[in-house]
Design a protein around this nucleic acid. Structure first.
Length: 517
RNA sequence: GGUCCCUUCGUCUAGCGGUCUAGGACACUGCCCUUUCACGGCGGCAACACGGGUUCGAGUCCCGUAGGGAUCACCA
């Protein structure tokens, strides 16, 4: 066991949990759990004006579903309360005052557009923008003068302009940045409200975070945060910048705003279509803003196993040895190490995720699969609490379906086991019933055999159908497809005799009649 | 454009100077099994970005080029 580690994940309340965010959270969580340390959830809501309460709930729900529990944070409290940045204003104000006092920050009265044009100039001339601090208030007289001009004063970091900042990154090694390329970032607005970097550094210190593990997009932010921390006399946390999760088939960062693009990816589109089919049948909301494969909720809603998702996510940017990749939660905790985190972005692969899910689901005992499938069957209106008969049917279907069920929501594929208003696959109907010359005649004959079959178990049906084939001198293949389409409307499914037994004699016969009629 | 990061099969990756005619997984695909769907078994396709060094020897070390990406807010 390594030394006590305290990590954190700091979501801003946006109303959804992004798959990339979960990956980052997972690594933080794993690190804390394997060391007997703590995992903290802190809410970055310095950008007020949002309904934090409502926007936070889906995120917490996501964490709970995934089984990533937090030791301190919203709803569980902890010794470093509060865990909402919006409630820690006094801490930031104190830090700002200290920075001002020590000369590491200054009050600045530049107007945003003035700075903006200066930045433009610098960019035009191809160089880095260096603020000449012309609106910096050196003393109270300056402050008065600027305010008399109607200017408002923010607080800026007085960043070093010489030397280098060396970041010791646990996944990237040493990253060296010239201080001169840094800007005098604003840490507090005119009204005194804090900005992200200040708040983040102060909180990480207050919460005694030992390891700041976050996405690589924060790497460029690190020098200024180190400056703030050092100026405040804080001990620096260990930094680890993870490669970001890239879009399917691409290298750009996965974003929830580029769905249209991802939908052009075959595998992504397939997963989305699967989700929509399940949603449609089970009456789920399918607003793409909240229901799509970039968001964690999507997987919960269509019946993924949280551990399977986690297992897949862990492999995005991390590997044990290139050979073993299926892990239990406990193994994930035991085996994870930061030094095996990859440096390059990892593309999100919906097909591999689905494969992991399918394997994990197939490995579950029938009873547990039935339990997981139950809510979907209820939502589809096929069974309800207390209805023993329909639930036995459900259990039978799950058993017969075997590993054809990749996720709990896949039960919708077997709607014909429960209701008669299933959809008929037009293509299959054409191919198996319309096209073969003898199909209808054969179907009519087998219908009569089935109707007089006394033992409608799978074995009984099999004997009947096979006997029929012998009498007619045809191969099983010549009738079985037509039989399947006629009784289920589907092109495929689980074993034909199991299917017939589950559908039952009366319905099977009636469906054949309906097909022929 | 400035700064920083990254670069092995389509994708996730193994590889930490010789055991690499580059291994595993997903995907794709061929055959077998199944007189049905799927699973499964056995195969196949497929990668060290490029150019210089260093070295007896480079996917592995160094430099450069190219490409990709992230970031440059009084957002987080």
């Amino acid at each position: 066991m390594t030394a006590m580690i305290r990590t954190r994940f700091a979501p801003s309340p946006t109303g959804y949990l992004h798959i990339g965010g979960v990956r980052t959270a997972l690594f933080n969580w794993l690190l804390a759990r394997q060391s007997g340390g703590q995992f903290i959830l802190r809410i970055d809501d310095t950008d007020a004006g949002r309904n934090v309460e409502a926007a936070l709930q889906p995120i917490l729900d996501g964490f709970r579903w995934l089984g990533m529990d937090w030791d301190e944070g919203p709803e569980v409290g902890g010794p470093h309360q509060p865990y909402f940045q919006s409630e820690r204003g006094d801490r930031y104000r104190a830090a700002t005052a200290a920075l001002l006092e020590s000369g590491h920050a200054y009050r600045d009265f530049a107007k945003p557009d003035e700075l903006q044009s200066l930045r433009e100039e610098a960019r035009q001339s191809g160089g880095a923008f260096v603020y000449d601090r012309r609106w910096m208030a050196a003393d109270e007289a300056d402050v008065k003068r600027f305010e008399a001009e109607g200017r408002e004063g923010v607080v800026r970091l007085k960043m070093p302009r010489e030397g280098q900042c060396v970041i010791h990154d646990l996944v990237r090694g040493e990253v060296v940045v010239e201080w001169a390329s840094e800007q005098d970032h604003v840490i507090a607005r005119a009204d005194g409200s804090p900005l992200y970097h200040l708040a983040s550094v102060v909180d990480d210190h207050d919460l005694e975070i030992t390891h700041v593990v976050r996405a690589a997009e924060h790497l460029p932010n690190t020098p200024r945060q180190i400056f703030i921390a050092e100026s405040l006399g804080y001990e620096l946390p260990q930094y680890a910048h993870l490669p970001y999760v890239a879009e399917p088939g691409g290298t750009a960062k996965l974003s929830k705003r580029k769905l249209d693009k991802y939908l052009k990816n075959r595998d992504f589109a397939n997963l989305m279509a699967r989700g929509q089919a399940i949603a449609k049948r089970c009456g789920l909301t399918t607003d793409v803003d909240t229901f799509n494969p970039v968001l964690v909720d999507f997987y919960r809603e269509i019946g993924f196993l949280p551990d399977a998702l986690l297992n897949y996510l862990m492999l995005l940017g991390w590997s044990l040895d290139g050979e073993h990749e299926k892990f239990t939660l406990q193994e994930m905790i035991d085996l994870f190490t930061l030094d095996r985190v990859t440096k390059s972005p990892a593309s999100f692969d919906p097909a591999k995720l689905t494969s992991f899910q399918a394997d994990a689901f197939a490995a579950l005992p029938d009873q547990e699969r039935t339990e997981r499938v139950l809510p979907f069957a209820v939502a589809a209106g096929w069974t309800e609490a207390g209805d023993a008969q329909s639930q036995q049917l459900l259990a039978d279907v799950v058993t017969a379906a075997g590993d054809r069920l990749k996720m709990a929501g896949d039960i919708i594929d077997f709607d014909y086991c429960f209701v008669d208003d299933y959809e008929v696959n037009a293509k299959a109907f054409e191919k198996r019933i319309n096209k073969p010359a003898a199909a209808r005649e054969l179907l009519g004959k087998v219908r009569d055999r089935l109707a007089s079959c006394d033992d409608f178990s799978a074995a009984g049906v099999e004997a009947t159908v096979k006997g029929f084939c012998e009498d007619e001198s045809i191969g099983l293949g010549e009738i079985i497809h037509a039989l399947r389409v006629a009784t289920t409307g589907a092109a495929g499914g689980f074993g034909m005799f199991d299917t017939l037994a589950i559908v039952g004699k009366e319905r099977a016969v009636a469906r054949i009649d309906r097909t022929l009629g």
